[in-house]
Design a binder for these strands. Sequence first.
DNA 1: TTGTATGCGTTATCAG
DNA 2: CTGATAACGCATACAA
Lengths: 334, 334
Amino acid sequence: MSIRKIAEMTGLSTATVSHAINGTRAVSSESKQKVLAAAAAIGYRPNIAAKFLRNNRSKTVALITPGVRPGMPSNYFYMDVMAGVHARLNEDEYSLIITTYEEPMEESRSFSFGVLEKQWCDGLLVVPNASEPSCIEQILKSELPYVLIDRKIDRFPCDYVISDNEKGSYEAVRLMYERGRRRIAFVGSQLRTSASHDRYLGYRRCLAERGLPEDRSLVLLNGSLSIEEGMRSGALLAQAGADAVFVSDNILTIGVFRYLKGAGRRIPEDISLIGYDDYEWMSDVRPGISSVKQRPYEMGYRAAALLLERLGDPGRAEGRACTLDTVLVLRGSH
Amino acid sequence: MSIRKIAEMTGLSTATVSHAINGTRAVSSESKQKVLAAAAAIGYRPNIAAKFLRNNRSKTVALITPGVRPGMPSNYFYMDVMAGVHARLNEDEYSLIITTYEEPMEESRSFSFGVLEKQWCDGLLVVPNASEPSCIEQILKSELPYVLIDRKIDRFPCDYVISDNEKGSYEAVRLMYERGRRRIAFVGSQLRTSASHDRYLGYRRCLAERGLPEDRSLVLLNGSLSIEEGMRSGALLAQAGADAVFVSDNILTIGVFRYLKGAGRRIPEDISLIGYDDYEWMSDVRPGISSVKQRPYEMGYRAAALLLERLGDPGRAEGRACTLDTVLVLRGSH
DNA sequence: TTGTATGCGTTATCAG
DNA sequence: CTGATAACGCATACAA
């Protein structure tokens, strides 16, 4: 099942066999025929480990993202990202290794990626866990080319692909302002990633531009992203007299919506709502939930493309960014 | 950055260094100290490709599933499966390679898995595409140990982990029967996988046991799984005078629900509905959608466990099955 | 157009 | 307790 076996069968040398298979130097068509026939006969498949050992390239890329937690409403955003990554890698016949980490990180466990330690891959696609500095250290230590996804890290320049969260958030808040809302609440996660940070910035920019005061009681930054937390936030902001709420996370959106409905608030008459991320079911609740739609598939696809470019041209400079526009999807809740 | 480098640094042989690192034979504590120190100093990481070449084990497993299609409501079921797989593999420090295929298969493209051709992995976890026989051929040809997930294939005995779809389906239909429904429709996909087949069987068994006639106009088997198809099915079964509908797919469930609501049918008064798979949003529509809940995370976890067992004991016989119970989640629609 | 020989990093065998 | 060395499968520099 090796190149040597084929060499024996055909009476050629391993060099000729190798070249015949890879088309890497001229081989008489006669020899080529023989080699291909023999290869087919024994079902030859190149051993990628040997190739890797020899060339230092595995044609494999790792994707590192926050994971799904059992029993929790999963964050399917990264599934769509993965689909995009996979699609792009496929075009160049790269394999995809997946590693996920728990978020928030368990205290007890240091941030370690088996994949990195094993030196499998040619490059890395990473949704960085910004609350854990060692994440970045690990990545840098691996000395592999990498592209960040969904979250950038300002401290150093590198390739990344993110959504224009600031703008998406701004537009959502502006829309509610234009509909006459003046006590607009913000529900989000703690500002540990550029994504959540930028969404908060967009909210604040809109308030500032319109001359609205910042009311701390209308800003709710949750430590964990769960439906329960979302419901709690819904209760708090209702109490604080909000007449609109922008929720910058999809799971919290469910919670806030559920609370408001359960408490008998009319949406959008009593309080208007815009959420984050776009799912089909948002059309099926009453009212439909307007939301800021990201394009996760594109995000993954573009990130993979960027990484492949870099793998093809190692000398290329870092720091190329790609910021994807969001789309405000209007249903009935705003 | 290799074992040899460490050997030079410490003045020991590569053999000793290797054993010191892996604890595979006795090494004086003094030597061990030196080796570990040197390793840390240069940031040594074992080269897995070399290991693989030597041992024929990569500690890597591939998961092959239907993929997410861009712009389509994704099937997130397999995301949860993947989470379970990942969790179990992690426990044994295995890496996970992901490959997806399009379903339904493009005609033009033969069923090929780069992963298999490259001989990356020690074993395979596969959601088989039953409509494409070459899928199985490919798997067999790879001669790797494998475990099927979500769908079994009766033709040959092998390890698999599936849901008890027949029973889940049966219970759903029975519930609607007990609520007095007599014209119960079935909406599903074409019977190309054991999963969809078994769901249909459960439906038929219930009808048969209760002495209900089988009405062909109440059975809708869709070629593609989309919301539009689901809506079309909804229209057809309403026309056919169904007073209940069991939908055996999560995406079709959205479509059927959307149609019925749009057409002004009261659920469950005019027509009752039970869907498949369980998502949070099913609680937020009105009425909440009752559904047959599978346990995808468990499914992945168990499948990975089975595979690891087999990798640890190659002589072990095939044919161990694991069938997971479903749970009927009652909301308001039944 | 073809062949020979070397080395990639690791482990295991054998011999000290 | 330690060391020398072969072998895993492949690609390539060099030689013919």
